[in-house]
Amino acid sequence: MNGLGELEAVVMDVLWEADTPLRVREVLDRLSTSRTLAYTTVMTVLDNLHRKQWVLRDKDGKAYRYRPSGTREEITARTLRRMLETSTDPDVVLLHFARSASVRELAVLRQVLDERSGDR
């Protein structure tokens, strides 16, 4: 997933697949990576994801339980919004994106624009 490191993306996949919030140990146990990871490594990744607002955490005794702060699609849209807001020229970014969009993506954008123009 764009905007995330390889391990962060794998951890997010674990959280999105989970039915309930998970502790660090539970995330570690569910990770399928080619290398052995330390508990503290996963804890650091989860802390970074929390700082980036990709995950929420709730205190559970002395530990935290982690859950995604939204669906994959919601977080991706939020990331795109932040990138536009921090760009020095968001209009140019949108133009580049529109030029690179597939026919299907353009159809979705057209549908939303038509809906919004009907709101006026």
Rank of each mutant, 00 (worst) to 15 (best):
R78V: 04
E26H: 12
D29W: 01
R51V: 11
R23M: 02
K62L: 15
S100I: 02
R35G: 13
A101K: 00
V112W: 02
D91P: 00
E26N: 09
Q53K: 14
T41V: 10
Y66K: 00
T33F: 04
T79H: 08
V55M: 07
R65C: 08
T88I: 07
T36E: 15
V92W: 12
S69T: 09
T86K: 05
R30H: 03
T40D: 01
D19P: 00
K62N: 14
S87E: 02
V55Y: 05
A107N: 14
R110S: 05
R110F: 12
R110Q: 07
L46M: 02
P68W: 14
L95P: 13
T20C: 07
R35K: 11
R30F: 02
D29K: 09
N2E: 13
V45P: 00
D60W: 06
L95R: 06
E17N: 08
L31R: 11
G118S: 14
L106P: 15
L4V: 00
D47V: 13
R23L: 02
L94F: 03
R81K: 10
D58P: 05
R51K: 09
K59T: 15
N2K: 15
L4F: 10
R116Y: 06
L37R: 03
P68F: 14
D89G: 04
V24L: 06
